[in-house]
């Protein structure tokens, strides 16, 4: 092959060869992931576009403003959640609540009582203006007592609130509340664990 021809071929193929001959990529070991807890959730979420089926606000929870993920409660908030009464899962009552500084400054620490189907399952004292993540175990028998139609009644009772002229008082800022439980094999309905 003529030298000129070789030169032309070489020039023509160089970009292609360069594109194909990258250095072998080498990587470091990444940060190690830690064990994670996976929980099934049946929660009312303030401001969420949709709620799980069967949730019904009964009283004491104000409408959520557009674009917000919290809503005001009064001194007695109540809602119903639909749980499978036959479920053997060990449900916890989970709540994410903000104690508002404007209330705390006027009233001092707020004492909250959480009631499920008429039975108290937990109490909390909110003495700082921040988000509080609360969890209380609930006896399965207590959930089954709800029967099938109405769902489980969850209430929050607040001892100190900020009065509102001409309206119900301001309690706490509710982000979400409902039942969660850690996943176990019994939760599988379809697929691999059938």
């Amino acid at each position: 092959m003529a030298a000129g021809m070789r030169l032309r071929l070489g020039l023509a193929t160089t970009p292609l060869l360069l594109a194909g001959c990258a250095q072998q990529p080498v990587f470091s070991v990444p940060p190690q992931r830690t064990a994670q807890e996976f929980r099934v959730q049946d929660l009312f979420r303030a401001g969420a576009p949709t709620q799980p089926p069967g949730i019904r606000l009964v009283s004491g929870i104000r409408p959520t403003g557009i674009g917000l993920d919290w809503t005001w409660t009064t001194d007695h908030a109540a809602l119903r959640l639909a749980l499978d009464p036959q479920s053997n899962a060990r449900w916890d009552l989970d709540a994410r609540i903000t104690c508002a500084g404007v209330v705390l400054d006027k009233t001092g620490p707020q004492h909250l009582t959480f009631v499920v189907n008429g039975e108290t399952v937990g109490k909390a004292t909110l003495d700082a203006a921040r988000i509080w993540n609360l969890r209380f175990p609930v006896e399965p028998a207590l959930l089954r007592a709800a029967g099938s139609g109405e769902g489980v009644l969850v209430e929050i009772l607040i001892d100190r609130t900020l009065p509102d002229a001409g309206g119900p008082p301001f309690g706490v800022l509710l982000h979400e509340i409902g039942f969660t439980h850690e996943l176990s094999g019994a939760d599988q309905k379809h697929g691999v664990a059938q």
Binding site: V40, Q41, P52, D187
Partner: peptide, 8 residues
């Protein structure tokens, strides 16, 4: 299974 997928 939306609850055990963790989706809404």
């Amino acid at each position: 299974n939306p609850a055990i997928w963790g989706v809404t």
